[in-house]
Design a binder for these strands. Structure first.
Lengths: 292, 292
DNA sequence: ATGGAAAGATAATTATTATTTATAATGTTC
DNA sequence: GAACATTATAAATAATAATTATCTTTCCAT
């Protein structure tokens, strides 16, 4: 029971004639006869009552015709479903990012959602060091990390620059200043993130270099909690600028550059080198690299 | 998008491997590769992520797989539907009969329904003279008439014998008798059916032959109404025995043979000589001829 | 009835399509 | 990076469906 045979069945039933059906199908009449008789031998029933020339279906023919039409409809539906996928009428983007890098994604997601509201975006929290592995294991399609991945099977694009910013409470003495020197920070109490981060070592060595005491009063695993503590005046913190931009713009926190701490880290959006990205992800990736 | 290609898609998705799928399909691995790539070029999307060996579907692959499974299910459903037809799990018998002959059908239908409760029986009222035409026009598959059809394309089987019976009210003087002579009927008032019937002429000529007055007081088009009038004592009537059997057996009417009126008419069940009878109708026909 | 036209069936041939065999390329794993 | 496994590709073969040609049947008209 081939789809094409079912098409012939439908054509004959519609045209009520083998030869007319042949014309509409751009086949010859024997081709139609043979297709029908193939169907008939397969299901073991006559489909048309040959005693009449008006293409009358048998009961079996009626039953099969019904299914044939449904199957053809389904095939058409399958084709439009795939087309919809291509045209981003549905689909999914899966991204892994960590607590820092996820902030970079926010404006990209916002813009993408505006353009393709029907695409689902699934951001999951990943540990930076493991994100390339997640990519390779196809757990996610895209990842955002703050280092260029070593894995040669992972391709990456630099998409944004991440720099450290000192955040202080708006009531703090430093609030309102543009920048500050490391030496001025000896008197401050710091709230630090205790996750393994490439920044951490660099910050510590910078303070040592400037013979300034780095007084870490609190260590926390949550960036969100750190920001709240700083807001309350419990201390100051050095955080990736992207993660505090929102609060700084709203005046909930004050942000200052630390003069001697100009190291920047590029954010990379990563994906499998040889993998097949979904249309949705491809478009997301393109948007991300364009929005740098 | 051929059904067989969709089967390959399903097999590969299930086995998560082209070569394993090839084994279960009893094909070689290149056959599977080619079938998939045929599908891919047709829909314009990759279906599997070849960068992995674990047969991961792309989003397009997932979407198409879903439809493929539905289509195969539908094909299986079509096959069982046709099988059901064959096994009388569903289907239809269409019969045309007139007011008289339909009574013959009752016990056949009763028995058929007992054996094949899922088959629909569609009895429609036809005018005897037109029933062969209905058969030829495929409006119905079977017909019951009280004459052998002239049309050589209509095949017929004698299935029952129809004889006239005189019905009288149970209170009537004749009630309780087995039979009566025509001469004794001159004093009776008759209620007659006014549809053109082969009996009518014969009855009239019989009465003439026996020099007995046939006093038709009422003519009606409804057998049912005639029976009710007779029941009420408004007169007597000559009706086909089959049509009054029920009332006679219940004692609502008394039935008598008229001695000189022994003409019988055979009932015939008819169908197209070269036509294709549905399974259901074939079985119905067989039962009808066996139950003679 | 009889002959002709039209529709469908059948047979043989041709064309198309799918499958196999053989081999190459690619990816995975240790 | 070598060995293994998996998939891709090419050419040949096999299988399948289409066409052409012909025949049979049915339907109409005379």
């Amino acid at each position: 029971m081939d789809i094409h045979e079912l098409e012939v069945l439908i054509a004959v039933a519609e045209e009520k004639s083998f030869s007319r059906a042949a014309k509409t199908l751009h086949r010859t009449q024997p081709a139609v006869s043979q297709a029908i008789s193939r169907l008939e031998t397969e299901i073991g029933e006559k489909l048309f009552d040959r005693s009449s020339k008006d293409g009358t279906l048998t009961q079996a023919g009626e039953v099969l015709l019904d299914y044939a039409q449904q199957m053809l409809n389904m095939r058409a539906a399958a084709q439009t479903a795939v087309k919809d996928l291509r045209e981003l009428q549905h689909g999914k983007v899966t991204i892994s990012a960590n607590e820092h890098t996820v902030f970079y994604l926010l404006p990209v997601i916002e813009e993408f959602k505006k353009r393709h509201p029907l695409i689902k975006i699934d951001v999951r929290r990943g540990v930076a060091s493991r994100i390339p592995k997640e990519i390779m294991a196809r757990d996610v399609e895209l990842g955002v990390i703050s280092f260029k991945p070593a894995d040669k099977f992972v391709r990456s694009h630099a998409v944004s620059v991440d720099e450290l910013v000192l955040i202080v409470s708006p009531d703090h003495a430093l609030a309102g200043k543009e920048s500050v020197s490391i030496k001025d920070l000896g008197i401050e109490t710091f709230i630090a993130h205790n996750a393994p981060s490439p920044y951490r070592e660099q910050v510590i060595s910078k303070f040592e270099k400037h013979s300034t005491k780095l007084n870490i009063a609190v260590e926390m695993p949550s960036l969100e909690a750190i920001k709240r503590l700083v807001e309350l005046g419990a201390g100051v913190a050095l955080v990736p600028k992207l993660t505090a931009q929102y609060e700084i713009s709203r005046g909930q926190l004050a942000g200052l550059a630390v003069k001697e701490m100009k190291f920047e880290r590029k954010l990379h959006i990563v994906y499998r080198r040889n993998g097949v990205l979904s249309h949705a992800s491809k478009v997301f990736l393109k948007l991300a690299t364009k929005m740098v």
